[in-house]
């Protein structure tokens, strides 16, 4: 964590509850990301993942704490941080080209029409939608709509991409191809990406770092799991990697049991320095305090296990 491109510093979100009490969605959340890193957040519904993303996007403000991006505390939205929405959020009265061009002309207001169109076209081609420029969103399939959403986010050449379960509404096949596209584009452009997902395999395939959050209300960041799989991993042979099941089991165990009990079991948990878990490197596992056998797991002992 030397190069902190994004640093979330002690943010909390509280809402006034019934009878003067306040409901804390999450609190004292610290996390950081390096430039070019792909991070996924996993946690159950209600732990405030979407709120964290909205705060990063500037659509929402934290009740406490600050978010620092590229050395600057953020206030409000920015064209440096593009959002890919879960529901694609395309403007239905504009064509594919119109939707992307809207973003382009918002970033470069002095550009003339031809320049805006050419720039937008480049990103429509990038996501493989050449030929569908003049279609309206209602004429596109769910996967194509989300491609437009991705093209729109990329077209403003942001410093980072924020994705809120971008593929959860898609069928498995389309989801797979889009995951490939996103991974390819992020690797090619060196994009820093922050993604919320419920899909453990999606996180394992895409992320360099997986943030595990405990259950809300009062959610905290429990662990940062480093992805041990090689950077040139492929979606189809992912599950053959010797460390794949260890990683997957660790995450699923967390979601099934530990996310509920984490805060009571670990009263000494320091949210500012959430332990980093390195699967397959037992000697380096910081979180290993003895009572967690899964972190001292050795490669090859439980292949074929699935959760």
């Amino acid at each position: 964590m030397t190069d902190k491109f994004i640093s979330i510093e002690g943010i909390a979100k509280r809402y006034p509850g019934a009878g003067g009490a306040t409901t804390t969605i999450f609190e004292n959340l610290w996390l950081s990301m390096a430039r070019g890193e792909f991070a996924c957040v996993i946690g159950h519904s209600g732990c405030g993942k979407t709120t964290v993303l909205n705060i990063l996007a500037g659509l929402d403000a934290p009740s406490e704490g600050a978010v620092i991006v590229d050395g600057q505390a953020i206030s409000g939205t920015s064209l440096d941080r593009a959002v890919i929405f879960q529901s694609h959020a395309l403007l239905p009265w504009r064509t594919v080209l119109g939707n992307v061009a809207y973003a382009v002309s918002s970033k470069w207001r002095s550009w003339d029409r031809a320049k805006v169109r050419a720039h937008a076209q480049k990103f429509i081609d990038l996501v493989g939608l050449s030929g569908a420029e003049h279609k309206r969103p209602s004429e596109l399939s769910g996967g194509m709509k989300q491609r437009v959403g991705i093209a729109r986010a990329l077209s403003i050449t942001p410093k980072m991409m924020l994705m809120d379960e971008p593929f959860s509404a898609l069928d498995a096949l389309t989801r797979g191809t889009l995951q490939d596209e996103v991974r390819r584009i992020c690797l090619e452009t060196g994009q820093t990406a922050f993604m919320i997902t419920h899909d453990v395999d999606e996180a394992i395939y895409l992320a360099d770092k997986i943030f595990l959050m405990t259950n809300g209300p009062g959610a905290v960041l429990a662990e940062v799991v480093e992805n041990p799989l090689p950077r040139d991993r492929g979606r189809t042979d992912l599950h053959r990697h010797p460390l794949y099941y260890a990683l997957r089991n660790h995450i699923i165990d967390f979601l099934v049991t530990r996310s509920k009990t984490f805060t009571t079991e670990r009263p000494d948990h320091d949210p500012r320095n959430a332990p980093t878990v390195q699967i397959g490197k037992p000697g380096l596992t910081i979180a290993s305090t003895g009572e967690e056998p899964r972190q001292t797991w050795m490669p090859g002992t439980s292949p074929g296990l699935s959760a």
Partner: peptide, 21 residues
Amino acid sequence: RKEWINVARTLEVGTVRRAFT
């Protein structure tokens, strides 16, 4: 729809342009 407003917000579109576009 809130999401359309959010699109305009993330693109830093001003109030007047947002109202018209």
